[in-house]
């Protein structure tokens, strides 16, 4: 793929050079050069055909995948998400209670939608349980501690520290209310700004 592979016309100019000037009137050289004139005509036709193809493909109802495809893709995704991480949040006399990381995530995201100027991004949750002694079987002794690492995008121009505080506060109340455990540590990172 050396540079000399770039196609050149009989007059020595490259196709690229002609292409670059296709929207402008012909140059002095092009007006007199047979090679350039032929190339210009062809490239102009190519350009028109390209635009036409782009537009017709975009709007051609035939050029869409079958209607059931979205569903098929989502079925696979849905089946796989259920095997995601589960966090053990309580051991009772009757058994264990686990919560999927996904459920915690969505609770946090729903909380975040109440804060204007914040878009949720990634959320990682660790759960730290104090090592329990072999005698303990009930819930009271081993309160799990969440460590939430939440990344967000903020609207350009907002007061970031104030908004992040409001967000943290919102999560701190949403988790005990929605799940029944302490929110633990909430680390919030503003990783991006978005235009309003």
């Amino acid at each position: 793929m050396a540079l000399e592979d770039v196609p050149r016309l009989g007059c020595g100019r490259s196709i690229d050079e002609v292409w670059a000037g296709i929207d402008q009137p012909p140059t002095g050289h092009e007006e007199h050069c047979q090679y350039c004139q032929t190339a210009r005509t062809r490239l102009q036709r190519l350009q028109e055909a390209t635009v036409a193809l782009r537009e017709s493909d975009l709007h051609d109802p035939e050029l869409k995948p079958r209607p059931g495809l979205t569903r098929a893709i989502m079925d696979v995704a849905r089946a796989e998400v259920r095997r995601g991480n589960r966090l053990l949040v309580r051991t009772t006399d009757h058994g264990t209670i686990e919560i999927s990381e996904q459920a915690l995530d969505s609770l946090i995201r729903i909380a975040a939608t109440a804060i204007p100027g914040i878009h949720s991004r990634r959320c990682r949750i660790d759960i730290r349980t104090l090592p329990n002694s072999p005698h303990e079987t009930t819930s009271t002794a081993r309160a799990p501690r969440l460590v939430i690492n939440f990344r967000v995008a903020a609207a350009a121009g907002i007061d970031i520290p104030k908004t992040v505080d409001a967000l943290r506060q919102k999560i701190r109340t949403a988790i005990p209310a929605g799940i029944g455990i302490d929110a633990g540590t909430i680390n919030i990172t503003v990783e991006d700004l978005y235009d309003v």
Partner: peptide
């Protein structure tokens, strides 16, 4: 005899 009963909360939603 009731044995262990394991509950997995997979989703919390409105």
């Amino acid at each position: 005899t009731p044995g262990r009963i394991h509950i997995h909360i997979l989703s919390i939603e409105p």
